[in-house]
């Protein structure tokens, strides 16, 4: 966005580009919010907390859902999302000044924290076959589709990989395999 503004792109083009790029946030909100909906909670609260949904807060909250009661989930996402949002400008300022002061390897490691943390959050719980397949398909399709259509690759990756994984996960043999695997694991404990 900053680059477009700098090069003098029309305002409308900038706003449209930002809107389309962030279309990838739509499935995040649709898939996360139903888990926290309760009767008696004002609708505006869901719209408010939707502002805090981003990649990291989505994965982090999805991971904790099974441990949280229905009435705790909205609070969890609010706290987690706000902590990420509020620490972000602070970390940006610190990073800006630290970047020139510390050895380059430290800077690189700090930049690498984000994808690393993000990756491990995903791998925390791999009990669901459809989820594992989604992650695998996405990991392959993401870089592949980026070669052909950089702007649309993420949405396309999600739609193609996710739909395929969901479809396969619904089939009866996957359900049977997952079921027997669960029983085996329960037997170990």
């Amino acid at each position: 966005m900053a680059e477009m503004a700098y090069t003098g792109a029309p305002l409308m083009a900038i706003v449209l580009a930002v809107g389309f790029i962030n279309a990838r946030l739509l499935p995040l909100a649709v898939s996360l919010l139903p888990h926290m909906r309760r009767p008696g909670v004002a609708t505006w609260k869901y719209y408010g907390v939707a502002m805090l949904i981003a990649a990291t807060s989505w994965v982090g909250t999805m991971r904790r859902l099974p441990d949280l009661r229905q009435d705790q989930r909205l609070h969890y996402l609010t706290g987690y999302g706000l902590a990420l949002y509020l620490s972000c400008p602070f970390a940006t300022v610190v990073g800006y000044y630290v970047a020139g002061q510390v050895p380059q390897p430290i800077t690189l490691a700090l930049v690498f924290l984000n994808p690393l943390y993000f990756m491990l959050l995903f791998l925390f719980d791999l009990h669901n076959a459809a989820k594992v397949l989604s992650l695998a398909f996405g990991a392959v399709l993401g870089p592949l589709l980026y070669q052909f259509a950089p702007d649309w690759s993420l949405i396309a990756t999600g739609l193609l990989g996710g739909t395929a994984a969901w479809w396969i996960g619904r089939s009866s043999w996957v359900r049977r395999a997952q079921h027997s695997w669960f029983k085996k694991e329960a037997g170990h404990d």
Binding site: P27, V59, V111, F137, G138, G142, G158, L159, G161, G162
Partner: peptide, 24 residues
């Protein structure tokens, strides 16, 4: 529908994280 959109989101974010590591 929620299962499907959740799968779509997992695939989308997995693609993103691989790109962040492979093509930063």
């Amino acid at each position: 529908v929620i299962d499907w959109i959740t799968c779509v989101t997992y695939a989308l974010l997995a693609g993103l994280v691989v790109r962040m590591i492979w093509m930063p």
